[in-house]
Design a protein around this nucleic acid. Structure first.
Length: 805
RNA sequence: GCGGAUGUGGCGGAAUGGCAGACGCAGCAGACUCAAAAUCUGCCGGUGGUGACAUCGUGCGGGUUCAAGUCCCGCCAUCCGCACCA
């Protein structure tokens, strides 16, 4: 009897071997496959079993690709700048540089326990000056391309994090990071013109093999709409108000106009009678928080006292103010067609404004309208020369017609805003700009990068809208790179997302001092073939990365313009009752103890076994016993047979090929939980068959061990060695091939139903004809065969169904 | 409000329209043991029946089909995303 499975000694042995003899080497002949994990930020609490899941999935996939003969690029690094690291440092009174280094060391130890095939020579850290030199370099390039600009405007401000935020970082009016309510603050900000890439970011989604959900989230976030701007003259003045509409076909139905309270003309439209009400309304709107404004669905508004003239028919329409119109979308003013827009309808009802229908639904006007008819489908009525046209056609053609008539112009709008890029925090990349009184904003020359983040005593955020860096006079005061006169450094830092927007490019050439990434390496190893991580970055990191990659493509750094060909979002692992794992809930399960007790291989397999990889799962320690027992059973089977393999039998060959087929198909469809159950199922069958025929043959054992290798690499290597192989199972590079001929059964057990209900079974030859099958069914059911059968269904290989009255 | 996902035993979950509950956990019984652990064997949705079996059963209500967890229509619940974007 061979030694029982001892995960500690086996795993220690093979970890040592792999370190001495790496198994994933680039021999220059293999094709490459780039399998990337979303890199972690080194938090102080370390990894829990939920983080592990994604890393296990990517490692299984990487090893699977290795076994197909690929050189797999599988790197790991640290997203170490940004708020989490800094907040952790502040809370614990340690400099972020020190705490970050400690956390990296701890998490690296934990990640090494996964025994993934990470290539640590490729490691990057976003806080390394050799790395952020290039983060700054990209900013300088964007500045030179006119894509980075400074602007003073009211931006989203998190009073708790004491910094400005990008739109993408505000979730339901709250800070994405700390969930405090976000306020507005007027600040001079660096902005990145991501809107210049809006069309490409939208249209190129089509070519990506990404989850539809993520593509839709990005496409909704970009929010492109087609319509027209229409100019309405203000009665009695020579001024005009421009509105944006996606429904210019309904222009004849405009019975009033609404401006956002923040609209520049809001105040001047007030008359003597309305001035007090108008100013009150504007004031009240300015003091209401975003959250109030979102929760309060009841429409409010005030009449300005002024009228606008519909250019098409000269109709006089009252101009109102209401906070349901957003100041920063379109022109901040809308024309209102209550008959064909829900919000306008509600407003018109509340303030008793006229409603004119201009689209006939089903050929006639709607009587006693109780809700707006919002579809662009029907014949135009009450619309002058447009009468009789089809609304859907007019909707498409009206922008051009209006432009031709001189009343406005075609217009495409986006929800996407430019990216607020300044952070008033210490722990980030300094923005490499010098402010010169004479020359203005001057980028730091590329050969002087990086602009090092200075050491400071006080790195807590100030809350004043200035970064802590502003207090370091010796650092702030510098000379202008352009004219040499005294000048001041930009003191804001970049957001957390800056480094992560391009880190995946650096892995493949992380020691290059001359270039962000060398041309040759870039074209050889990039882009990423498979990207694995959580769905929470759908419109943050994943949108920013695409933007950066497109920009780097445009300036000739890389020759592709989409970074991640395929994306997989793994589900979260929660604690009991679906509660998110967190320190404060005290329900965090650390992988460390589980590895100690059950072994890395068992934990790897259990991480997959808990459920479909794309779905959330509740962690329950107890289940890991089952996986551990499975490994032991398979271990014993092979250890016992390895010394004296049995001869091949027809049954064993058939079982082997079925196993190859099933495991491979499930792997290819990423159904990793059923791969594990498949292993258990087939192992049980192998054990049973081996028992019956006195052993298992060599080729079947080799096959099982190879299939197992991506999942339980240590156990697989040990068994592979036991089977007499000298090289690593991964150096064998042979994923088993299923022979479909060899899998075929000549007889099948099929079910017999009566009226669709299972009544019995019968074993039939695969090619049994109808008469044979029905005769067999009749015999099998005996007296239970219905006498009044009216129809007999026989689907070869599937079913017999007797239909009876 | 709009969009998407999910809903199956005590639990996690499995089922190209064709035997619902694979696989595993937990549980029960047995073997081994002085005993326990480990391991092995068997049972394991509800109801009725000693039993062969019968009957109900995949969130709810309809429908299509010889046959529906699966397809279609209408609901409900939970979760996620968006949320006055004109």
């Amino acid at each position: 009897m061979a030694a029982t499975y001892n995960h500690k000694s086996v795993e220690k042995k093979w970890r040592g071997r792999w370190e001495a003899h790496p198994i994933n080497v680039n021999d220059g002949r293999k094709p490459k496959y780039y399998c990337l994990d979303m890199f972690p930020y080194p938090s102080g609490s370390g990894l829990h079993v939920g983080h592990w899941r994604g890393y296990v999935i990517s490692d299984v996939w990487s090893r699977y690709k290795m076994l197909h003969g690929y050189y797999v690029i599988h790197p790991m690094g640290w997203d170490a700048f940004g708020l989490p690291a800094e907040n952790y440092a502040i809370k614990n009174g340690v400099h972020p540089k020190i705490s970050t280094a400690q956390n990296v060391a701890n998490i690296k130890r934990q990640i090494k326990d996964i025994s993934a095939v990470y290539d640590w020579d490729m490691e990057v850290n976003t806080t390394d000056p050799e790395f952020y030199k290039w983060t700054q370099w990209i900013f300088v390039k964007m500045f030179k391309a006119g894509l980075a600009y400074e602007k003073e405007m009211p931006i989203n401000w998190c009073p708790s994090c004491k910094t400005g935020l990008a739109n993408e970082e505000v979730v339901n009016g709250c800070c994405e990071r700390c969930h405090s309510e976000v306020t507005k603050k007027n600040l001079k900000q660096w902005m990145l013109k991501i809107t210049a890439y809006a069309d490409r970011l939208l249209e190129d989604l089509d070519q990506l093999d990404w989850p539809e959900k993520v593509k839709k989230m990005q496409s909704d976030w970009i929010g492109r709409s087609y319509g027209a701007e229409v100019d309405f003259k203000v009665e009695g003045t020579d001024k005009a108000i421009t509105v944006y509409t996606t429904r210019p076909d309904t222009l004849y139905g405009a019975t009033f106009m609404v401006l956002a309270p923040e609209h520049v003309m809001a105040k001047e439209l007030a008359t003597d009678e309305t001035r007090e009400d108008v100013e009150n309304y504007i004031y009240r709107a300015s003091t209401r928080s975003n959250i109030d404004r979102m929760q309060d669905k009841e429409k409010t508004g005030v009449f300005t006292g002024s009228y606008a003239i519909n250019p098409l028919n000269g109709a006089k329409v009252p101009i109102w103010l209401s906070d349901y119109v957003l100041a920063d979308y379109g022109t901040g003013a809308i024309m209102c067609v209550p008959a064909h827009d829900d919000r306008d309808f509600e407003f018109a009802k509340k303030f008793s404004l006229p409603i004119i229908q201009v689209i006939a639904k089903d050929g006639r006007e709607i009587e006693n309208m109780t809700e707006a008819y919002t579809e662009a489908s029907g014949t135009m009525i009450n619309s002058g020369e447009w009468n009789g046209m089809e609304s859907s056609v007019l909707k498409r053609e009206a922008p051009a017609m209006i432009e031709k008539m001189g009343y406005g112009r075609k217009k495409v709008n986006y929800k996407l805003r430019d990216w607020v890029f300044s952070r008033q925090r210490y722990w980030g990349e300094p923005i490499p700009i010098v402010h010169c009184p004479d020359c203005g904003c001057v980028p730091v020359p590329e050969d002087q990068l990086p602009v090092l983040l200075p050491e400071v005593e006080k790195y807590e955020p100030t809350g004043t809208g200035e970064s802590p860096l502003a207090a370091i006079d010796s650092w702030v005061n510098t000379t202008c790179p352009c004219c040499g006169k005294p000048a001041k450094r930009e003191t804001n830092t970049m957001p957390q997302w800056a480094g992560s927007s391009w880190y995946f490019l650096r892995y493949v050439d992380n020691k290059n001092k001359e270039e962000l990434v060398g041309k040759e390496r870039a074209s050889q190893y990039l882009p990423v073939d498979m990207y694995i991580g959580g769905v929470e970055h759908a419109v943050l990191h994943l949108l920013y990365s695409r933007f950066y990659t497109k920009f780097l493509h445009d300036i000739g750094v890389v020759d592709f313009d989409e970074p991640f060909k395929k994306l997989f979002n793994q589900g979260m692992i929660n604690g009991k009752n679906g509660v998110k794992m967190s320190k404060s809930m005290g329900n965090v399960v650390s992988p460390d103890d589980l590895i100690e007790d059950y072994g890395c291989d068992a934990l790897r397999m259990y991480e997959l076994f808990v459920g479909p990889p794309e779905m959330d799962a509740e962690w329950d320690d107890r289940g890991i016993d089952g996986v551990r027992r499975f490994i032991s059973r398979l271990w014993n089977l092979i250890q016992d047979s390895a010394a004296a393999p049995a001869a091949e039998t027809a049954d064993m060959i058939k079982l082997r090929h079925k196993m190859i087929y099933d495991i491979t198909a499930r792997l290819e469809s990423f159904s990793l939980n059923t791969v594990i159950s498949g292993f258990m199922e087939y192992t049980n069958k192998l054990i049973e068959l081996a028992k019956r025929q006195g052993g298992i043959d060599k080729e079947t054992m080799d096959t099982v061990v190879t299939l197992l290798a991506p999942f339980a690499p240590h156990a697989a290597e040990e068994l592979w060695e036991t089977l007499g192989h000298e090289e690593s199972v991964f150096e064998n590079n042979q994923w088993p091939q299923a022979d479909e001929e060899a899998m075929k059964d000549d007889a099948l057990e099929i079910a017999i139903q009566v009226n669709g209900k299972m009544k019995g079974k019968v074993t039939l030859a695969v090619d049994a004809d109808r008469d044979t099958a029905l005769a067999a069914a009749r015999e099998a059911l005996g007296s239970r065969y219905p006498e009044n059968a009216i129809k007999e269904i026989y689907v070869p290989g599937k079913i017999i169904n007797i239909v009876a009255k």
